[in-house]
Deep mutational scan, measured.
Amino acid sequence: MLDDRARMEAAKKEKVEQILAEFQLQEEDLKKVMRRMQKEMDRGLRLETHEEASVKMLPTYVRSTPEGSEVGDFLSLDLGGTNFRVMLVKVGEGEEGQWSVKTKHQMYSIPEDAMTGTAEMLFDYISECISDFLDKHQMKHKKLPLGFTFSFPVRHEDIDKGILLNWTKGFKASGAEGNNVVGLLRDAIKRRGDFEMDVVAMVNDTVATMISCYYEDHQCEVGMIVGTGCNACYMEEMQNVELVEGDEGRMCVNTEWGAFGDSGELDEFLLEYDRLVDESSANPGQQLYEKLIGGKYMGELVRLVLLRLVDENLLFHGEASEQLRTRGAFETRFVSQVESDTGDRKQIYNILSTLGLRPSTTDCDIVRRACESVSTRAAHMCSAGLAGVINRMRESRSEDVMRITVGVDGSVYKLHPSFKERFHASVRRLTPSCEITFIESEEGSGRGAALVSAVACKKACMLGQ
């Protein structure tokens, strides 16, 4: 009897593995994704193909990295998701002549009506938060230079001027797309009239992360975010950046690689679950690469896999709870928690219980395998993109072996128990001629924006502006 049951459990697990095998990517698959990513990057950089390229390769006008001589107080704003952060950054000489960066910050959550109302409502709310922060720190009387981390696709015309191309991540505030974001912020500050600010720089969160990590390690020339969304930036040779005049030196390019796949480059790798996630998203047909990796989508992918296993009578005796059938019910943090389970399955059992399920031991094991399959594919897909960037940098610099540091931020990278190990191992397999160091950014977005502002202020002083 026991043997029969054991055989049935083994057969069930084997069927589960057959279904989950769809998520496995072979090294040849990853090399294919990497080569296609490089081709799209090239198209994004070139003037004649930029418009139709899915990977936009947006110039950021960040050319210099901090040298350690900029000092002063800077205000930093960070808008990239449902939370908005205001930070005071003091850049100065530390002990023994070292450079020191001290920060104080406060988080504000953005109400739904500000995210989806008008641009005026959104930026009025942001300036209200700045006003509140300055009151708390008794700094209303000071006109501070301000660095703005704005983590949406922007076409820069200068370091302090950028046109919002399109909202992502659930934002829909009308009247912002096609307009200068810094102008919208300046107008809102003017409307309030109770404080003055000098907006000197606007950067993407990947750029802010790279600059913040450069402060720790001067070989950091790539910034990457794996959180709600997924994106990367890197220092490109100016001669390859056709959208900006000049051939000397390097400029940081914001790849906006989340949109890779929007022209069909990933079609052969998309599964039924991916198509369902895409169809029910706020932007169907867009940001397809990001939807395979980002935390906004990972939990939902797992939920759809679990429903398939229920329908195949391989999980929960073929019956799903009402909660499990509800879109968004299986949160991405559950994926991390399930994979963090120590082996007694308590954590998995508790999560499934909150979803109205009474799982068996085998159910718990199957749910864990589903989570591992989805998150491992995410790590491997992400590795193909980064390997594409790094191999490109090595080739354009004609280096036999390139040493490089990548600064990384984002909740999936930082909080998932195995993502970074799987990701690092896969990147290294795909970049055999590179020695890569990964560092995690601390308060990256805010500190990085302030350091970019410090560079901009120093330049302005040198130019006598």
Rank of each mutant, 00 (worst) to 15 (best):
P111E: 12
C230S: 14
V222R: 01
M393D: 00
E93M: 12
T168V: 03
L243N: 06
D311R: 14
L122Q: 01
M393E: 01
L352R: 01
V33M: 09
E272M: 06
P153F: 02
Y289Q: 08
F123H: 03
T60G: 01
F260H: 05
D198H: 08
E51N: 06
A173R: 04
R43M: 10
K90L: 04
I225V: 01
V33C: 07
S418G: 09
D344W: 06
K56C: 06
Q138L: 10
R377F: 01
K12G: 12
Y125T: 03
G249D: 08
Y273H: 11
G72T: 06
L243G: 05
V62S: 04
K32P: 04
D274W: 01
E331C: 05
T431D: 09
G258I: 12
C382F: 00
R429T: 14
G464H: 11
L355P: 07
H105E: 10
I351G: 14
I126T: 05
K90D: 10
R403S: 11
A387G: 08
L184C: 11
F330W: 06
G388V: 06
Q239I: 14
T206D: 00
L144V: 05
V207K: 03
G294K: 07
I293N: 02
D247S: 10
E52R: 10
L307S: 11
E421T: 10
R7S: 08
E272L: 09
V181N: 04
D135H: 09
H50M: 05
V91N: 03
V71T: 11
K13S: 14
E272G: 14
A449Y: 00
G227M: 00
A11E: 07
A188C: 00
C252I: 15
D205L: 03
S383R: 04
E216T: 00
V408L: 09
R429P: 11
L25V: 08
K143R: 08
F23N: 01
L357C: 07
D217Q: 15
E221H: 09
D73Y: 15
V226A: 07
L122C: 04
A320W: 12
R7G: 13
Q239K: 08
V16R: 12
M462S: 12
H137P: 07
A176W: 00
R250E: 14
L79F: 04
K296D: 12
K161W: 03
F195K: 15
N180R: 02
D267R: 10
I436L: 08
R422D: 08
K104I: 13
T103D: 11
V406Y: 02
C461R: 13
L306R: 05
G356V: 08
E440K: 13
F171R: 03
E22K: 06
K102E: 11
I439F: 09
P66V: 10
I348Q: 08
R422C: 13
G407S: 08
E96V: 12
L30G: 14
E443A: 06
Q24I: 06
K102T: 11
V86T: 06
A53W: 02
I19C: 10
E52H: 14
G147L: 09
D3A: 11
E22G: 13
G356C: 04
S281M: 08
R447P: 01
H218E: 12
A173L: 02
K296W: 04
T326W: 14
D160G: 01
E70S: 06
R333G: 14
Y214I: 15
S445R: 02
L146W: 02
K346R: 13
I436Q: 03
M210E: 02
L271S: 15
A11I: 14
A387Q: 07
C461S: 14
E248I: 12
E248P: 08
K291T: 07
G117D: 06
E9W: 13
N350P: 09
L292K: 10
G295W: 00
M34S: 10
V412T: 09
R36G: 04
Y289V: 06
D42E: 09
D78S: 01
H380R: 13
T209R: 04
S280A: 09
V338I: 14
V253E: 01
F334S: 11
M402D: 14
E443C: 14
K169F: 01
T255M: 01
R186F: 01
T362A: 10
V86I: 10
F330K: 09
M57T: 07
N240R: 07
